[in-house]
């Protein structure tokens, strides 16, 4: 069934947009209801586009009303528990911190840049699919993705993350001799 097919990813997408776990399921439910009502066999192939269009619109609407500061995972707490003089553990924590820093940078992007990043990099939507969901030209989407990547790079470098280490599939913060 369509709901089962899209549900988990949609809830998580709404969460990434709003930063609110408590309302992500309500947003998804609302998007399903709106997308399914006019749904029939003729327009079945357009369900995904229509559903995500509604999901993004509803997420932003709710986010504008209720957005709270993005919750920061308890990385420090985790570090205190796990730092057992083990470089692998330090590496893992550094990677998690890198992910968190990058997610914060994504969530700080403008609406137009944030949504293309979430659709492209989390939902694996093609440029064409994003253009359909957002009613934009493909060139516009490409341009937004380019700008978003540039801003994300600048933002995380500003916060001390060394982008050159990404090629090692790791985030490493400057000043760490081993990690």
């Amino acid at each position: 069934m369509l709901v089962e097919m899209y549900s988990d990813k949609a809830v998580r997408t709404a969460y990434l947009i709003t930063g609110r776990v408590d309302i992500a399921e309500d947003i998804t439910q609302e998007a399903f209801i709106q997308a399914i009502i006019p749904f029939n066999k003729k327009n079945a192939q357009f369900f995904k586009t229509r559903f995500y269009k509604i999901l993004m619109r509803t997420s932003w609407k709710v986010a504008a009303r209720t957005k709270e500061p993005i919750q920061v995972d308890s990385i420090e707490r985790e570090a205190n528990h796990n730092l057992a003089d083990c470089f692998d553990v330090i590496d893992t924590i550094a990677t998690k911190q890198g992910y968190e820093a990058l997610y914060k940078a994504v969530s700080a992007l403008s609406k137009h840049l944030n949504e293309v990043v979430v659709l492209h990099y989390y939902n694996d939507f093609s440029i064409k699919e994003i253009a359909q969901v957002l009613n934009c030209r493909e060139g516009t989407i490409r341009s937004r993705l380019f700008k978003a990547r540039k801003l994300l790079t600048q933002e995380i470098m500003k916060n001390g993350w060394d982008v050159s280490y990404f090629e090692d599939r790791r985030f490493r913060k400057e000043g760490h001799s081993h990690v």
């Binding site: 809830v11 997408t13 990099y121």
Partner: peptide
């Protein structure tokens, strides 16, 4: 590679929540 890290970052954040598995029922009831 940077693009892969963006994906990993979003997946990592998204996986911190566990959506309930009753969405189909919720939609049906509505």
């Amino acid at each position: 590679m940077f693009e892969r890290m963006i994906t990993n970052s979003l997946i990592s954040k998204a996986q911190t929540i566990n959506p309930r598995q009753d969405m189909a029922d919720r939609v049906k009831k509505s």
